[in-house]
Amino acid sequence: MKLQVNGVMHEVEASPTARLLDVLRGPLGLTGTKEGCGEGECGSCTILLDGLPVNACLVLAGQAEGAEILTVEGLAAGQLAPLQQCFVDDGGAQCGICTPGMLIAAEALLRRNKAPDDAEIREAIAGNICRCTGYQRIVDAIKHAAVVRAGGAS
C-alpha cells in the first residue's frame, strides 16, 4: 500500500482495513499521533487528511490511499512552527498527550481562518479533549500563533 505522509510517499506492508492510526504508529513509526480512546471521542489521533482534520482511529488505511496525510511530525520544518512555539511558550501543553492532535486541529483552523476569535478557536478544538489545561492557555496559544503567522510580533 502507498501512503503519502508529511509530503513523503511511503510503501507500507499493511492491511487496507487496518486503522490508519495503527499504520502510522506501527509500520511508519510515526508515534506522535496518539491513541486516547479508539472511538473518535478524544481527538488525540487527529491528523489532516487532504487538509481536513479527522480521527485516525476511525479511518481505515485503505481509505487514506491517494490522500495527503499530515501528522504532528510534519508540522516543524527544521525549527518549530509558530503554532508549536506558541504552545510551548504559552502553556498550551502540559502532559502533552493531547498536544499533537490539538496542534493539528489548530493547524486546520489557521489554514482557513487567519484571525480566529475565541469562540471560533474553541469550536475548532472541541473534538480534542484536554484534561490538564482547562483549555484557556491552548486558546491563547492558538490566538498568539495566528498573530505570529500573520507576521506580527512573537
Binding site: 499521533t33 504532528v72 508540522l75 518549530l80 508549536q84 510551548v88 511558550d89 501543553a93 498536544t99
Partner: peptide, 22 residues
C-alpha cells in the same frame, strides 16, 4: 519567570516517548 517548559519541544513535535510509543 515563565521559562518555556523544557519538555515542550518534544511534546509539540511528537517526539516525546510515552509508554505505548516505546
Amino acid at each position: 519567570r515563565s521559562v518555556p517548559r523544557i519538555d515542550g519541544h518534544a511534546k509539540v513535535t511528537g517526539k516525546a516517548v510515552y509508554v505505548d510509543d516505546l
